[in-house]
Amino acid sequence: MSTIPEHLRYSTTHEWVEDLGSGRYRVGITDHAQELLGDLVYVELPEPGRGVQSGVTCGVLESVKAASDLIAPLTGVVAERNEALGEHPEWLNEDPYGRAWLLVLEAVPAATAELLDAAAYGRLIEGQ
């Protein structure tokens, strides 16, 4: 059973979002997502300054046996991306909620309103 931290919000496409306050949101993929993908080997993330749109592809996650689009969970602008993942894609398997964060987005306050809470996300992956 995969971990689903209570304090995060979730998209149906298996990204998590942490509200950092002041319209800043940290984004990553869930434990469930990394389990589905298997050993991650490569990550392609949008450059800081680029706009991303909720529900639209903004990057690529590649594992040994699969390639998956990264879907932006929010509409906003990329403030930071996790450059260390270029060298350490395995962090996505080891610590998806911690050092394997992907992006920090700038968006309107309360942008996470549409996203699922931990319980709803838990039901979603249970049903799949």
Partner: peptide
């Protein structure tokens, strides 16, 4: 790098 290839990426 098989994820570039047709048996995984299909149309992409």
């Amino acid at each position: 790098l098989q994820a570039r290839e047709q048996h995984i990426r299909r149309g992409q």
